[in-house]
């Protein structure tokens, strides 16, 4: 089976499932690249950190376009233009989940 380059684009603060989905494709022998496009993200759980480490271990990479990336995990910073150039080589680009929200989340769901 041919290994594909898959970019999972995340622009909503509810990032977790895109990372899980990317890990699922890393396990399927594809090159999985979650991309954090903005910086308003809740703290990363240990589960999420482990998922990201596994993606990197399996020849994927976690990218961040945000100036202030989430702490506690290895991410490769890049500009929007650099991301665009990288994605020219993509087999699939997957804008994941919901669009970015306009308003800040209330305390009930901000963490």
């Amino acid at each position: 089976m041919e290994s594909k380059k898959l970019f999972f684009l995340i622009q909503n603060r509810m990032y977790g499932d895109a990372v899980r989905s990317a890990l699922g494709q890393a396990v399927e022998n594809h090159y999985a690249y979650p991309v954090f496009l903005y910086e308003e993200y809740p703290p990363l759980s240990d589960y999420m950190k482990e998922n990201m480490e596994w993606i990197v271990d399996m020849e994927g990479e976690v990218f961040t376009v945000a100036e202030k990336a989430p702490e506690g995990v290895e991410m490769t910073p890049l500009t929007l233009e650099e991301l665009g150039e990288k994605m020219r080589e993509a087999d699939q680009i997957i804008p994941y989940g919901l669009p970015k929200q306009t308003n800040e989340p209330p305390p009930a769901c901000s963490e």
């Binding site: 622009q11 496009l37 929007l80 233009e81 991301l83 665009g84 150039e85 994605m87």
Partner: peptide, 13 residues
Amino acid sequence: TDDVKTLVGILSR
């Protein structure tokens, strides 16, 4: 959005 337009421009070049 403007960011999407930027990415589309690069991907379409």
